[in-house]
Amino acid sequence: MVQPIGETNDRRMLLRYPGRCRLCGAEMTAGADAIYERDRRTVRCLECTPAHAIQAVAAPSSELWMQRPPEKGVLRLRAPASSVIAEALQVQAAAPARTWVQRFFGRSPLSVESRPWFLGALGELEVARLLDQLGPGWAALHAVPVGTAGSDVDHIVIGPGGVFTINSKFHEGGNVWVASRRLLVNGQRTDHLRNAEYEARRVAKLLTQAARRPVEVTPVIAIVAARRLTIRERPERVIVLNVARLPRWLQSRAAVLAAGDVTDLSVLAAAPATWGNPAIPEPDLVAFAQLRTTVVAARNRRLGWALALMLSPFAMLATLAMGMLTTFG
């Protein structure tokens, strides 16, 4: 029996990742036209959806994600963190395999060289997950390659509030301190502010050329997994905020773009020609998912050993107490 689609929370969209229909189990490839069930966080194919229900949830034709499936290589379907995932896997491929002893005690499979790339990917994936909450009227592109030197922009977001470049920075457990011209991580100076500002200027220049009219771009740095973020003084040109605040902050911006402008700029931003027709390699997302599972399993094993070591003195004391009770009881 086909269940009805919810009146407000279901959305028709082009899948960014492969998926499986919740009702019939059919496999759906990336780019497939499907219904996203926001309350369940699942997808269903159009064949399992009545025609009248599809029309009920269809977004206006002017919205980016309701256009016809784009030609191969268009950037709107590029997976988040594609560039850093590809780099992480390439560097990790040179890492020696762990011995059984290392696996037994939970040593991380990551090499020293691949760890920064792996953590960078986690940051970009978390930002992309939150950007999915923006809803209709907004478009988000991820891992947008620019030029021929292999550089990319973590995220480009276009909506009523304007155009934004978002640079995700994963600093797990770190202390981040921000002043007007400095951003420190655990007391160490970084180039985050300078790089974010340069990135936004570059994107603004290329979008301006493509649109043939001025396009302003706001640089944003989204801090992921930090223990503390202290804004001593807000930078003049770059927005720095905790990643959890990102969707609401974007939605709270005063409207500066009409719906048609958002659509036009989104289409231009999704075209490789806008960025100089860079090469767009596709990462092995399955291999990265497997690596991520292995990293989590190793971490859990280390935590298990740490807990066992913490409890072992208490276990020895309990055994000694039981022995004394048996002897003198």
Results as ranks from 00 to 15, higher is better:
residue 6 G to Y: 00
residue 9 N to L: 13
residue 9 N to K: 13
residue 10 D to E: 15
residue 10 D to V: 03
residue 12 R to D: 07
residue 14 L to Q: 07
residue 21 C to Q: 01
residue 25 G to I: 08
residue 30 A to L: 02
residue 35 I to G: 06
residue 43 V to D: 07
residue 53 A to F: 02
residue 54 I to T: 10
residue 60 P to Y: 13
residue 62 S to D: 07
residue 66 M to A: 08
residue 71 E to H: 02
residue 72 K to I: 12
residue 77 L to F: 04
residue 80 P to R: 00
residue 80 P to S: 00
residue 82 S to C: 03
residue 84 V to E: 02
residue 85 I to G: 00
residue 90 Q to K: 12
residue 91 V to C: 04
residue 94 A to E: 11
residue 96 P to T: 15
residue 102 Q to G: 10
residue 103 R to V: 10
residue 112 V to F: 13
residue 118 F to W: 12
residue 125 L to N: 14
residue 126 E to P: 01
residue 129 R to F: 07
residue 129 R to T: 15
residue 130 L to W: 08
residue 134 L to W: 14
residue 135 G to C: 12
residue 137 G to K: 11
residue 144 V to M: 09
residue 147 G to P: 10
residue 152 D to N: 14
residue 170 F to H: 15
residue 170 F to I: 13
residue 173 G to E: 09
residue 178 V to L: 05
residue 182 R to N: 05
residue 185 V to H: 09
residue 188 Q to R: 15
residue 203 V to I: 11
residue 216 E to H: 08
residue 218 T to A: 09
residue 228 R to K: 08
residue 234 R to D: 00
residue 241 L to K: 04
residue 241 L to V: 06
residue 245 R to I: 01
residue 249 W to H: 10
residue 254 A to P: 01
residue 256 V to T: 10
residue 256 V to W: 01
residue 259 A to F: 03
residue 269 A to E: 05
residue 269 A to W: 01
residue 273 A to Y: 07
residue 279 A to W: 02
residue 280 I to R: 09
residue 281 P to F: 04
residue 282 E to N: 07
residue 308 A to T: 12
residue 322 M to V: 10
residue 323 G to M: 11
residue 323 G to P: 01
residue 324 M to Y: 15
residue 325 L to H: 10
residue 326 T to W: 10
residue 328 F to L: 13
